[in-house]
Structure formats: structure tokens, C-alpha cells
Design a protein around this nucleic acid. Structure first.
Lengths: 162, 162
DNA sequence: ACAATGGGTTCCAAAAAAGAACCTGTCAAG
DNA sequence: CTTGACAGGTTCTTTTTTGGAACCCATTGT
């Protein structure tokens, strides 16, 4: 499997990774969620090489995850903002954040906490079933071919996910 | 920021990415969740270069995400299995999967569906607050320094996440 | 004795990233 | 009317990572 064909794999994970599955993209998006919007600010906060940053921002814009919005004319300047597609990556960030909090924090605990505005508590995310509301884990799911499945998938699928 | 120092960043996202933030690791883990356990099988299913696969499996094992379990002696053969730390990455996979289903599927729909054993429905994951049970999104959260925060973080933090 | 099997390691060429310098409009100050 | 600053890139060159193929090694079946 080559990297450029990843977006045509019959797998939503592979397709997602074709956009966010490299060294820098999710860190750039972290800054977006923290309301960073300008080239210079991304560069300073991340310590990323400028041309790598330019490339990532371009690819994210082409993918519809970010959009360029002018914030002044003469000289024209544009900032990068999350689209709805980009905002929808929040669960991905949250899952990685919660996993890092649990497994990668030192003995002193995680470096940042997230507080839920609605209830006021420091929280983490729980994944629940969209239909019955029960918590989901790897052993509670089975996989089956969907409407976009190519024939080759049909023979491979059939087990559960653990 | 250099890649090798990512695991010491005061950010759980960066620390998580120091393990799963490269081109291949999450695809290797996808196969693990689909119960692939042997070197040859990873190689065939992923089409990954052998030494890259060997390197990823070693790093994941060192990180405690996979463990090597002997499945026969003479000749000794070992297989790779998810540890508890690895199984805990399921929400990350699920988030990426759901995002791909929603945003990266063609008009014919997603290639695979996940069915919840408990309720029998085809489902996706919903992220809810661990304290109040309400759905979470980017705009409903604020960030604040945690117990492991270095001084530099204290001035940068303080906004919400969108 | 010889090939097959599982699980690697080694070598070389191609692609991607790091780091630093350079370019381009548009102002604003001297 | 020249000099400098600023935002936002682009162009080099050097180092790391990949991809692809070949090779290695212990066992075991024929």
C-alpha cells in the first residue's frame, strides 16, 4: 500500500489517515482548536519548518478541513479556520488527549485538563453507542461490509474487533 | 520541536502522537484490532516494507501497546497482541473511523459498518461527558492547567477550545 | 540433503523533513 | 524616495524515513 493511494482504500480509518496520519497535521489542528489562525503563530508555537507548515496548511485547506478567510485587505492577509469538517475532528483529538492523559502522563498527572462548560466538571470523554447509549469498547463490536464495500472486503470481514 | 522530544512535551496529544503519529502505526493497530497477530500476516495485509514493520512492532512493544506472546516452542514463534494500553486505543480508532465514514466515504457510503453486540444496531460512537453524560463538542469545553503543567503552559492556557 | 516457513536484517535508491536563506507586497518612518 | 518591518511564503542543501528487494537463520517436513 502506498501513501498516495491511502484515500482510495476501502477503509475509513485509512482514508482518515490519508489526511491526519502524518507527523505534523494533528499538531497543527491542535493549534487550530486553541484558536491559532495565522501562519507565523503556527510556526512559533510548533517550531515547524516553514515549508512543511505551508504544505500542511495547503493540504488541509484542499481537503476542506480548514478554510482561508481574509482578515484584512491591502495588504491582503488571510487566516486559517476550521470548517465544519475540521471541527468534526474534535472527537479524534479528545480520544488522543484522553489516552495520553491516562497512559503517557508522568506521576504528577496530565499537563492540561478539560472542563465541561455545561456541568462545570473536569471531564474526559466516554464513547457510547449512538443507538442504545451504552459505553463501547473493542470487544463489544462486530464489523460487517457496508454499502461501499468492494467484493474483496466481503471475504475478509466477519469477525469482531478483538 | 523535534520528533524525538515529542514524548516530553507538556501535551497529552503530542505524547500520544509520539507513539501513534506516524504513517503506519495506526494501520498496524487496525490489523491488531482485527485479530491479526503475526509478522507475515501484517506484511501481506498492509503491503508494508518488512523493516518498517519490524521497527513499528518493536516500538509498539517497547511502548507497552503490544506484547509478544509465544504461541509455540521449537521453533519458538511469537505473536503480537494488544495490551490493555493498546486496547484503550479503541476510542481513537473509532473516532477516526466515524470521521472517515462521515467525511471520506463516496456517494455509495462507508465500506464497513460496526454493529453493537449488545443492542444489535449498526452504530457510531458518540462522545459524552464522563460526569454529566451530555454530548461533547469543541465549543463546550475549556482548557486549564493540570497537575503536570509546567510554568510556561500557565500563560498560554486560559481560552476555550474553539 | 533440500526446500519451505516464520521472522527477521542488510543494502540501495527514492521521498520527506529539518534548517536556513531568500523573495514579495504593502505600508510607515526618516 | 530609500530603508525597514511584517506577513506569508518559496528555494536551497543536508539528514531521516520509506520502499523494494535480497539475504540470513533456526527448525521441520519430504
Amino acid at each position: 500500500m502506498r501513501w498516495e493511494e491511502l484515500d482510495r482504500e476501502p477503509c475509513s480509518l485509512a482514508r482518515s489517515l490519508s489526511i491526519v496520519g502524518d507527523r505534523w497535521t494533528l499538531l497543527v489542528l491542535r493549534e487550530c482548536f486553541l484558536r491559532v489562525r495565522r501562519f507565523e503563530e503556527f510556526e512559533q508555537r510548533l517550531g515547524i519548518a516553514r515549508h512543511v507548515l505551508a504544505d500542511r496548511l495547503k493540504k488541509l485547506t484542499e481537503a476542506g478541513v480548514l478554510r482561508k478567510e481574509p482578515y484584512q485587505e491591502r495588504p491582503r492577509r488571510e487566516e486559517y479556520r476550521l470548517t465544519e469538517k475540521g471541527l468534526d475532528l474534535y472527537p479524534v483529538m479528545l480520544s488522543l488527549l484522553d489516552w495520553g492523559d491516562k497512559w503517557m502522563a508522568g506521576p504528577e498527572g496530565p499537563p492540561l485538563l478539560r472542563r465541561h462548560k455545561a456541568c462545570g466538571h473536569v471531564v474526559h470523554a466516554v464513547h457510547v453507542c449512538s443507538e442504545c447509549g451504552e459505553p463501547l469498547d473493542a470487544r463489544s463490536m462486530t464489523v460487517e461490509p457496508g454499502p461501499g464495500a468492494p467484493p474483496a472486503v466481503l471475504k475478509a470481514a466477519g469477525g469482531d474487533t478483538k
